[in-house]
Design a binder for these strands. Structure first.
Lengths: 344, 344
DNA sequence: TTGTAAGCGTTATCAA
DNA sequence: TTGATAACGCTTACAA
């Protein structure tokens, strides 16, 4: 088991007859070091295969260049795009990214928070799991002035950065869109109501109905626990078997929306003529289903980039971690054939 | 900017009148420490809010508990599921996961390798980018006996662990399936041929044709650089405008396959009667497109878990890093309506 | 501009 | 069973 001993700044110092501090400074392009020494040291470092040990630097500086991510599941289109945005921005700034997923289990979320804390991350980006109802496990970061950015699924009882979309407005506009297409009985697939994202979309839906003088029919509001394909199918089945079925569905995610399109088509219902459907997220499946699903697009990549930026800025500006700063991004209603009754 | 000073083992030691070494051992459940001391120390640690600093431990041990991942893009269904599998297995073993993406740019891949090396990861899991044609940037890990696992897109000129599928067999069987459905002129969407995954699928395709005495028509082999939706569309258009169009397509990924279904349907071609299509990966879109796409399923989650296991085992068994060990996983042909001519 | 020395929080070795 | 001490590789006052 060969293993070449690693080159350290001490090795460089000995070789070049400089002190370790000079070597360290030269490697970090410190201005006090002569150009000649800097060149010489950097050249030798390269030649000898020196590689900085960021563990050591982080320990010494009491500050790592590592951003931690906590999400429920990595393999969801929105989430993986979000992570992609975070990673791109972090990498560009010379930071690393540690990921952790809870698989929607609260206990995992708590343990992951511990593990990331122990890794002395310099900032945390979180999108809450379905099960998360309290936030005490995030306090440890705030206590050490480690900035926390809640993205998308954010709590509102915790001071921190928030990068979110206007879920209320999006829900309102999605519903209004269906109304504009002539829908009179609009059903809603509502997600877990303790999560703001779902709760606000529902509020937007309700207000849009009210302001258009459409009576709210509680029977049309389907509470889906996980918004899965199977749940969407079941909800659609129930709705369509009613005496007075809906003529439109606003689903809080695309998975359930696509499921409803497929289920309804199967039962011979015409989309969008008899049932207009709009989803949420603009997942890849939404442009593949036939007819293509209208949806609300989430700027996932951008949300990731902005979240990273909040963390980087926080460190630079030396802010206090119990700041509360909300960044609200625009969503866009994407109209496709699943809801286009009025052709242009 | 309040910031509670963090509690260290020295603080615990002072408080309890033990030495730091005893505290350290107690926290690690070292057997030489009395039960009483261990209990007492762990209780006080909890009470005082002690949190281990894994940077310090890693530095001291010259060995971190962090697995690095290098992939091209996170937001692809196969990749994000792979990462999910890696993360689950790593977390269970008390390891962290650092991610890096190259966005299919070779230079980024090289820089990411450097960054992960500098973080002193204990193992590396890699799926190569489209542009990667050499592997010298991985040598630094082997030199330090840091195990490398190539997953899916693996080079064959580098000794390491490999967790792959039998692309040749999968290509062969996918093609055979189309032949079994009565296809006589089968086109192939081939990806970048310097990558084994695509190269072997094509070989399987060619051999299946030959062994069924079907002449290979070079005109039916479409070289797609990135296997994107747009490329799939264009390739389909070209094929269908030929005097002698294909009656089947084996696409090396689902994106291009789905694209071909949509494009062909648009031109009034009946799927699967006039054109049977099979893809590769079993991405979510493949079960949503109408007719649903037959495909070859990749055990992505499992590949991630196994890759992590290779790294963990390597450390435990104290192996030499220039080992060459291949794990080949089974794929499954999933027959859906896009190729089902013979109904059961 | 460069060097000395201390220290970041652990853990392993050796000794008691 | 416990303690003293050095070391992991780096950075930064402070001194020269």
């Amino acid at each position: 088991m060969k293993k070449n001993k690693e080159v350290t700044i001490y090795d460089l110092a000995k070789k070049l007859k400089y002190s370790p501090s000079t070597v360290s400074r030269a490697l970090n392009n410190h201005k006090s070091i002569s150009e000649k020494a800097t060149r010489e040291i950097q050249a030798t470092a390269k030649k000898m295969g020196y590689r900085p040990n960021s563990l050591a630097a982080s320990l010494r500086n009491n500050r790592s260049k590592t951003i931690g991510i906590m999400i429920a599941r990595i393999n969801r289109p929105f989430v993986s795009t979000l992570i992609s945005g975070i990673e791109n921005a972090a990498r560009k700034a010379g930071h690393n990214v540690l990921i952790s997923q809870s698989n929607d289990i609260y206990e995992n979320e708590v343990n992951n928070a511990k593990a990331l804390y122990d890794s002395r991350i310099c900032g945390l980006i979180v999108s809450l799991g379905m099960e998360t109802k309290d936030t005490k496990h995030f306090q440890q970061f705030a206590d050490q002035n480690i900035p926390i950015v809640f993205v998308d699924r954010a709590p509102d009882d915790f001071n921190s950065y928030r990068v979110i979309i206007d879920n209320y407005a999006a829900g309102y506009r999605a519903t209004q869109h269906l109304i504009d297409q002539g829908c009179k009985r609009i059903a809603h697939f509502a997600g877990a109501q303790h999560l703001n994202v779902y709760n606000l979309r529902k509020k937007g839906y309700l207000d849009a109905l009210r302001e258009n003088n459409i009576p709210v029919d509680e029977e049309l509001i389907m509470d889906l626990k996980t918004m899965s394909f199977a749940e969407g199918k079941e909800a659609t089945r129930i709705l369509l078997e009613r005496d007075n079925p809906p003529d439109g569905i606003f689903s809080s995610n695309d998975t359930a929306a696509v499921s409803s399109i497929i289920t309804a088509k199967d039962k011979g219902i015409k989309i969008p003529e008899e049932l207009a459907v709009i989803g949420f997220n603009d997942d890849p499946i939404s442009s593949i289903v036939d007819p293509a699903l209208s949806t609300v697009s989430h700027p996932a990549m951008k949300m990731g980039e902005i979240s990273t930026q909040r963390i980087l800025d926080h460190s630079t500006r030396n802010m206090d971690a119990d700041i509360s700063e909300i960044t609200m991004l625009d969503t866009e209603i994407i109209v496709r054939n699943s809801s286009k009754r009025i052709k242009d």
